[in-house]
């Protein structure tokens, strides 16, 4: 028996003897994808956030890879920070975080990027009234821990992107 899933679109098959292995360890050890960061290891800080979509629900959701075992992602599509920039071009979220000096040490940044990217995608599909946008942003990234920046600049970077999504009624590309 094997566990099958994809990581950034590439099929993976592992023996089910590894069912209890953590997703973050698989990413690091087997795939050498270390952009997903280990911090607390118990799913509190969200530095290790990746996105996972699992049929029949095609909508991806944020997943804490340090607390997710391989058994639970059988049949899923996993996306990590390494998949966000496309064809050598940064995603607007990455560009906004850079331009706003949103991070310092940067260790929490991949988690923020993944959560923010997912938030914008979902906001385009399910927009919220403008007066609820701040709460929606907070729901998306408010639980992530950053020790350096005091969060201000992450919010400053993400807010205009979210406003643009609402204004255009489409996904930011």
């Amino acid at each position: 028996m094997t566990i099958s899933f994809t990581v950034n679109g590439i099929p993976q098959e592992v023996d089910d003897s590894r069912a209890e292995d953590r997703l973050i360890d698989y990413l690091h050890d087997d795939l050498n994808l270390t952009g997903t960061k280990f911090c607390c290891g118990i799913g509190v800080c969200r530095a290790c956030t990746v996105t996972v979509s699992k049929p029949p629900n095609p909508v991806p959701s944020p997943v804490i890879s340090c607390s997710t075992v391989l058994a639970t992602i059988d049949g899923s599509a996993v996306s990590t920070i390494e998949s966000v920039a496309q064809d050598g071009m940064l995603d607007p979220v990455q560009q906004a975080f850079l331009g706003h000096f949103a991070f310092q040490c940067g260790y929490c940044t991949p988690g923020f990027v993944m959560a923010a990217r997912l938030f914008l995608d979902q906001l385009a599909v399910n927009p919220v009234p403008a007066d609820q946008l701040e709460d929606a942003i907070h729901d998306a990234i408010g639980a992530h821990i950053c020790r350096c920046t005091g969060y201000v600049r992450y919010y400053q970077a993400l807010r205009p992107l979210a406003e643009a999504v609402l204004a255009r009624g489409e996904v930011v590309e």
Binding site: L33, T34, G35, K37
Partner: peptide, 25 residues
């Protein structure tokens, strides 16, 4: 400065921290 000089590497998840490295790297 228009961005952190180390920012690009960090925002794209490149290997910059000691935690990112293994002997094979």
């Amino acid at each position: 400065a228009n961005q952190r000089i180390d920012g690009l590497a960090k925002v794209t998840g490149q290997k910059v921290y000691a935690r990112d490295f293994h002997a094979r790297d």
